[in-house]
Simulated scan of single mutants.
Amino acid sequence: MTMINSNLLKTPCYDLHLEAGGKMVPFAGYEMPVQYALGVKKEHLHTRAQAGLFDVSHMGQLKLIGKNAAAALETLVPVDIIDLPQGKQRYALFTNEQGGLLDDLMVSNFGDHLFVVVNAACKAQDIAHLKTNLPEDIEIELLEDRALLALQGPKAAEVLKRLLPESADMIFMDSRVVNFEGAECIIGRAGYTGEDGFEISIPAERAEHITRLLLAEKEVEWVGLGARDSLRLESGLCLYGHDIDQTTTPVEASLLWAISKVRRTGGEREGGFPGAEIILEQIATKEVTRKRIGMLGLGKAPVREGAELFNSDGDMIGVVTSGTAGPSKGYPIAMGYVETKYAVLDTEIFAEVRGKKLPMLIQKMPFVTQRYHRG
């Protein structure tokens, strides 16, 4: 067991991680499990084959309450929140006046309120941003006494159906409030691995009981932060603070799909979010100086975040923002930014690792097939 700074916060599942032999590390102000006895690679492959259970209780959970909550939130994101159907969730982006990204988040519509999940490292900043920019008639309720679990993998639906039969008819991006073992839980069919799965928000006092029920199912293993990172990278999903940040626009980050059509193609709801002029201009002209790309390594050595990228003439053209050995693929994969003219599929570029230039091929993301259950 690792000795860690006692000022760090603990999730409601902390004792269960220790019981399972979790290797705890500081992460976003919490003590979090980076891996368990299985190890990162086996946890990763287990999630792809069966079902991995992730503790993501460090994320920020909140409610926005008020009849104009959707319209108010829409002034801060380039996403259609007003027409988000009840019982559905949507991926959104907080933008700044320069068109950069303050955070990415998930928003669910429950009729009388919006349920919002934000990144752990951005939690305080996001809450301050909402308090500063939302009108006074919108109540912001922080849900600080809840755990958040993610059950991910091809067997996730089968497992959850045994314990919670009403989850069976949910499809990708459905959100629902359910009674799970006597606890009022918020459940969404989504996740961060590219696999089918669910995220389950549980009252803290019931978290251990429900977590033990899930772990008792033969297909389920705990999975730590290490495999969570390699799984999301294989699936081409950005990690805030690494692949996207306040200096990155959605267009540079190849996140055009996350900007709702109604917010970018004319009509009264076009724009109206921070940085809209810059972002809409980039969409219209397609003129950006860099683009986010996927890369696969042509050798065996993994290429990590921060490695500089070069063209065949030895000119520096970009940087790696995430990299892994690619457990499902059997070869190194990475994500990063290059000058726009190099962002062409099958272009060979070179990553510098310990003074050596390793060949990489620009490839389409995701690197693995996403298996969301769309019904």
Results as ranks from 00 to 15, higher is better:
110 F>C: 08
307 A>H: 08
276 A>V: 01
343 A>K: 12
20 A>D: 01
209 H>Y: 15
46 H>C: 05
183 A>V: 05
61 Q>L: 07
70 A>M: 11
4 I>D: 07
339 E>L: 15
100 G>Y: 07
120 A>L: 02
375 G>F: 13
367 F>W: 09
140 I>M: 04
70 A>P: 01
326 G>Y: 03
173 M>I: 00
297 G>H: 11
15 D>V: 01
373 H>L: 14
220 V>Y: 09
303 V>L: 05
113 H>V: 03
344 V>D: 06
253 A>W: 04
279 I>K: 03
238 C>M: 13
276 A>D: 13
253 A>M: 04
268 E>M: 11
191 G>R: 09
162 R>V: 12
204 A>D: 11
253 A>H: 00
92 A>E: 04
308 E>A: 15
144 E>F: 02
139 E>L: 10
320 V>Q: 14
146 R>G: 00
145 D>Q: 15
332 P>N: 05
110 F>W: 09
176 R>K: 14
374 R>K: 14
290 R>M: 08
275 G>P: 09
275 G>L: 12
252 E>G: 06
343 A>Q: 11
368 V>D: 00
363 Q>E: 15
3 M>S: 11
229 D>S: 15
23 K>N: 12
168 A>S: 13
137 D>S: 14
106 M>N: 10
111 G>H: 01
349 I>Q: 10
24 M>K: 00
336 G>T: 06
28 A>V: 08
25 V>M: 11
339 E>S: 08
328 S>L: 09
64 L>D: 03
100 G>K: 10
359 P>L: 06
65 I>S: 04
184 E>C: 09
75 T>Y: 05
326 G>N: 07
162 R>D: 14
358 L>G: 09
82 I>A: 12
367 F>G: 00
105 L>Y: 01
14 Y>F: 14
183 A>G: 12
13 C>P: 00
21 G>L: 05
223 V>P: 02
120 A>V: 02
213 L>N: 10
223 V>A: 15
281 E>S: 15
324 T>Q: 04
312 S>W: 03
245 D>H: 15
87 G>M: 04
29 G>T: 10
4 I>C: 06
363 Q>K: 15
359 P>V: 08
25 V>S: 10
77 V>S: 11
208 E>Y: 01
51 A>L: 06
111 G>M: 07
169 D>M: 09
306 G>M: 06
322 S>Y: 03
93 L>I: 11
16 L>T: 01
347 T>P: 02
187 I>A: 13
335 M>T: 14
98 Q>C: 08
90 R>G: 00
180 F>D: 11
294 G>I: 02
111 G>T: 00
228 R>K: 13
348 E>H: 11
315 D>C: 02
355 G>H: 14
206 R>E: 12
67 K>H: 06
16 L>A: 08
73 L>W: 10
118 V>Y: 02
304 R>C: 09
64 L>G: 04
177 V>D: 13
314 G>A: 08
188 G>R: 06
